[in-house]
C-alpha cells in the first residue's frame, strides 16, 4: 500500500472519530448547561478546552456563551475540529484513498458529508440541536458500520483502526486532563454520589454513563470512575482499550517482519508502563502528571507511525 494511502486512511478515520467526539461534547455541554441552576454559559469554557479548541476560539474576538460555543464546535470553518470541518476533512481524505475503501464506505462518507453540509448550512437553533446531532451521529455511524461490514481485514483496515483509536485515546485523555481535579480523592466532597454534576460530565462526554452505572451502580466515586475510564478493557473509550487496539493493529501490520517497528515498541511500552497497574498506582504517581505523560506518548506514537509507514517522504 502507498504511504500516502495509509496516511489518508489514518486521517480519514481520525477525523470521523473526532467529528463524533466533538458532537458528543456539544451534547454533553448542552445537557449540563440545562441542568445547572447558575450561569449556563459558564460550563462552555471547559467544554471547548476538552475539545482542544479553547485557544483558537479566544483568538477570534467573540463572547463565549452557549450560542457561540455551539456554533464554533458545530460548524465554524475556522475551527478545524468543528463537526463540519471534520466531516469535510474525512471526506477529502476518503477521496484521496477512494481506491482503497469499498464503494459502500465511500458512499457512506460522501452521504455523511452531503447531510452535514445541508444540516449545518446555517446556525442551528437550540430546539433543533438534538435532532441535528442525532442525524450526524447516524450518518457517521453508517460509515463505521460499512467499514466493519465491507472492508477486508488487511493493512487498509489496520490504518483505519489506528486512526480511530489514536484519536479516541487522545480524546479520552484530553477530557481527563481538563477535568482531572474532580476525580482527586481530596477534592471530591466525601459522600457525594455519582450525581455529582462534574463526574457526570466526564462520563457523558465519553459515552460512559450507562456502562458505568451498569457496572458500579450508584454508590461509586472517583476511584471507580478513574479505573473505568483509564484501565477497564471492556470500556471501548478507555485508554487501556484504545491502546490495546493500537497494539493489535500495529502487530497485524508487523506480521512477518523480522524487526519490531519503533511505533510498536512505543505502544508496548505505553501499555506495560502505564496501563498495566492498579488504579491506586495512578493516584500515587499523580493523576494529572500521569494523563500528561499519556498524552505525550500518544503524540509520539502518532508521529512514529508516520515515519515507520512512510506517510511522507
Amino acid at each position: 500500500m502507498l504511504g500516502k494511502t495509509a496516511n489518508g486512511l489514518f486521517w480519514m478515520y481520525r477525523y470521523l472519530e473526532r467529528a463524533e467526539n466533538t458532537a458528543r461534547l456539544i451534547e454533553t455541554g448542552q445537557r449540563i448547561a440545562l441542568t445547572r441552576l447558575n450561569d449556563r454559559d459558564e460550563e462552555w469554557g471547559p467544554v471547548l478546552q476538552s475539545a482542544g479548541t479553547l485557544t483558537a476560539f479566544r483568538a477570534q474576538d467573540e463572547d463565549l456563551n452557549q450560542e457561540t460555543a455551539i456554533n464554533w464546535m458545530l460548524r465554524a470553518r475556522g475551527n478545524p475540529s468543528s463537526v463540519l470541518s471534520c466531516i469535510e476533512a474525512a471526506r477529502q481524505n476518503a477521496r484521496l484513498v477512494r481506491a482503497a475503501v469499498t464503494g459502500e464506505v465511500w458512499e457512506a462518507v460522501n452521504a455523511a458529508y452531503m447531510d452535514a453540509r445541508d444540516l449545518l448550512a446555517r446556525r442551528v437553533r437550540e430546539r433543533d440541536l438534538p435532532q441535528v446531532l442525532r442525524a450526524i451521529r447516524q450518518s457517521t455511524s453508517l460509515v463505521r458500520g460499512m467499514t466493519h461490514g465491507t472492508m477486508l481485514r488487511n493493512e487498509i483496515y489496520d490504518f483505519a483502526r489506528l486512526g480511530t483509536f489514536l484519536e479516541r485515546a487522545d480524546n479520552t485523555a484530553r477530557i481527563l486532563d481538563v477535568k482531572y481535579y474532580v476525580l482527586l480523592p481530596s477534592a471530591g466532597s466525601v459522600g457525594t454520589s455519582i450525581d455529582n454534576v462534574q463526574w457526570e460530565t466526564i462520563l457523558r462526554s465519553l459515552s460512559a454513563h450507562g456502562g458505568f452505572r451498569m457496572e458500579y451502580g450508584a454508590g461509586a466515586g472517583p476511584l471507580e470512575i478513574t479505573q473505568f475510564l483509564i484501565l477497564d478493557k471492556r470500556m471501548p473509550r478507555s485508554l487501556a482499550f484504545c491502546v490495546d487496539k493500537l497494539c493489535d493493529n500495529l502487530r497485524y501490520l508487523h506480521k512477518g517482519d523480522r524487526t519490531l517497528m519503533p511505533s510498536l515498541k512505543q505502544v508496548n511500552h505505553l501499555q506495560a508502563m502505564y496501563l498495566s497497574h492498579d488504579v491506586n498506582a495512578i493516584f500515587d504517581f499523580g493523576l494529572h502528571e500521569f494523563i500528561g505523560q499519556i498524552l505525550d506518548h500518544l503524540g509520539q506514537v502518532a508521529r512514529q507511525i508516520e515515519i515507520d509507514y512512510r506517510f511522507y517522504e
Binding site: 500500500m1 502507498l2 500516502k4 494511502t5 477521496r95 477512494r98 481506491a99 464503494g103
Partner: peptide, 12 residues
C-alpha cells in the same frame, strides 16, 4: 480514482 479502483491498482 474510479479506474484505479476498478482495475485494482494503485492511484499515485
Amino acid at each position: 480514482a474510479f479506474l484505479a479502483d476498478q482495475m485494482g491498482v494503485e492511484l499515485v
